[in-house]
């Protein structure tokens, strides 16, 4: 499988190192290492242009990467270009300030949150609460059932009941379900206004707060 965070491409004007949206500088480093080790010939002495597909790297971090590339692989960085057009759905496409990987800080708010695994189906009349962090349900949430989490909610089955994520105020909280047909959704203080699909669509979906502070639901491709 091709590396999703970093790609090394040869164009007419030379080598390009394409860096896509990512979570942290360490992830980028690891991805570069992996990408270069895929090459079956040495790149020593070559020059490379860095194409940033999202402005997530700070200047200091770019400098750090440049010196790292020089030291480890003997690659000279001849320039840095930042593409500001949004790429890679769904996260990077969202024109909102609340979205997780677009924030400029590299701290992942999920790192400090505990999560709890619920290895059964939440049936009608049952409630599963975890205000401290995220909930992962190894089953369904049936109509009349309820899940509440301080952070994210992940349902590895069908979500037919009500889901309230982000109860601790983190607006980047999301609700993911393999089959998505909830009665009610709430993230933080935002309720869903638009009608959510009544029937599962046959693919995983994700709900999060999008532009205009409304909850949007879309196909879940990757985080």
């Amino acid at each position: 499988m091709a590396n999703s965070t970093v790609a090394l491409r040869a164009y007419r004007d030379g080598l390009h190192l394409i860096i896509r949206p990512h979570l942290s500088i360490t992830e980028v480093e690891a991805a570069i290492q992996q990408e270069i080790s895929r090459m079956n010939r040495s790149l020593a002495g070559a020059s490379v242009q860095i194409d940033l597909k999202s402005p997530t790297l700070k200047e200091a971090e770019i400098e750090f990467l440049s010196s790292k590339l020089k030291e480890t692989y003997d690659l000279t960085v001849r320039g840095v270009e930042v593409a500001d057009e949004p790429v890679a759905p769904p996260i990077a496409a969202a024109p909102t300030t609340h979205v997780i990987s677009q924030t400029t800080d590299t701290v992942n708010p999920r790192d400090s949150e505990p999560s709890r695994i619920v290895p059964y189906t939440i049936r009608s009349g049952q409630t599963e609460e975890f205000p401290q962090g995220s909930l992962i349900i190894y089953g369904d949430v049936n109509s009349g059932g309820e899940v509440r989490a301080g952070g994210d909610i992940v349902v590895l089955g069908t979500l037919r009941g009500s889901a309230y994520a982000g109860a601790n105020g983190r607006l980047s909280a999301v609700i993911i379900a393999m089959d998505f047909a909830p009665l009610q959704l709430q993230i933080g203080t935002h309720m869903n206004r638009s009608s959510v699909n009544q029937e599962p669509r046959g693919y995983p979906e994700i709900a999060r707060i999008g532009a205009d502070d409304i909850i949007i639901v879309e196909k879940f491709v990757k985080f």
Binding site: R123, G125, Q126, G144
Partner: peptide
């Protein structure tokens, strides 16, 4: 039908 099934679901939870 959906209402009977929701109630059955509730009862199954209680029985479990």
């Amino acid at each position: 039908d959906v209402s009977a099934i929701r109630d059955a679901d509730r009862i199954i939870g209680l029985l479990q």
